[in-house]
């Protein structure tokens, strides 16, 4: 009944066990993609001071504007604040006004080389080509890019982490060397659940008064 009222394709269950099925009859529906196939990232030096990340987002999914993070793992470089375009404003019952991206989005962040004696040049004084050719390994920039998105069907993916390595100043586009969920730590069978150390680096997203009221007013 609930499904019919909503006028949307109902969920379907593929149940191979001889147990009770808690679903009405339904037609097969599309299943969700793994995060790495939904949110495809590539990166390049847009110019000698700026890295450009491009996300290709599968239909039916979206990324949150405020959920990008860049972690620089290369001491000789410093990355700056992410600059992202305005997204589509969505009134979220929980978050209030949020901005999301669909299809594709490009975000930028500045990067500078701190030590000129590593064989390259500071992006502020040299062009990209010089930086790229002056030295090989020393010019590698290793980054961890975190993003987070959801599917229109009403589920969210855990924060997704992409590991990228770029050659400083190179205009080549690179793709992640690895992709993982932030929460994807291996499970130790012998130690089922031990709590991880508290991480205060991720601020809580604001809760809109409307939702707080909604929860509070629930009898």
């Amino acid at each position: 009944m609930f499904f019919m009222l909503l006028g949307l394709p109902p969920a379907v269950i593929a149940n191979t066990t001889a147990t009770t099925v808690a679903a009405p009859d339904a037609t097969p529906t599309q299943e969700l993609l793994p995060a790495e196939d939904v949110f495809k990232i590539s990166a390049r030096f847009k110019d000698s001071k700026t890295i450009e990340l491009t996300y290709q987002i599968a239909d039916g999914y979206y990324l949150y504007r405020k959920r990008f993070r860049v972690s620089n793992e290369t001491p000789q470089f410093r990355v700056g604040k992410i600059v992202s375009p305005a997204g589509k404003v969505k009134q979220d019952a929980t978050f209030g006004r949020v901005e999301t991206y669909r299809k594709s989005v490009r975000v930028l962040f500045p990067i500078t080389m701190l030590h000129k004696d590593t064989g390259s040049a500071d992006g502020t004084t040299n062009d990209a080509t010089n930086g790229a050719t002056a030295g090989a390994g020393a010019n590698s920039v290793k980054l961890k890019i975190t993003s987070q998105g959801c599917a229109d069907v009403g589920v969210c993916y855990p924060p997704l982490q992409h590991d990228l390595t770029l050659q400083f100043g190179s205009g080549d586009t690179v793709v992640p060397v690895s992709t993982s969920g932030v929460g994807a730590t291996p499970l130790a069978q012998s130690q089922p659940w031990t709590s991880s150390p508290p991480d205060t680096s991720r601020p809580a997203l604001p809760v809109s008064p409307g939702v707080a009221d909604l929860v509070k007013k629930t009898p």
Partner: peptide, 21 residues
Amino acid sequence: GSVAQVLSSPASMQAAAQMPV
């Protein structure tokens, strides 16, 4: 994986490849 949970999907997701969730 024998008991597959499957999400209903809007038309916009029809192009997505199938993968058990």
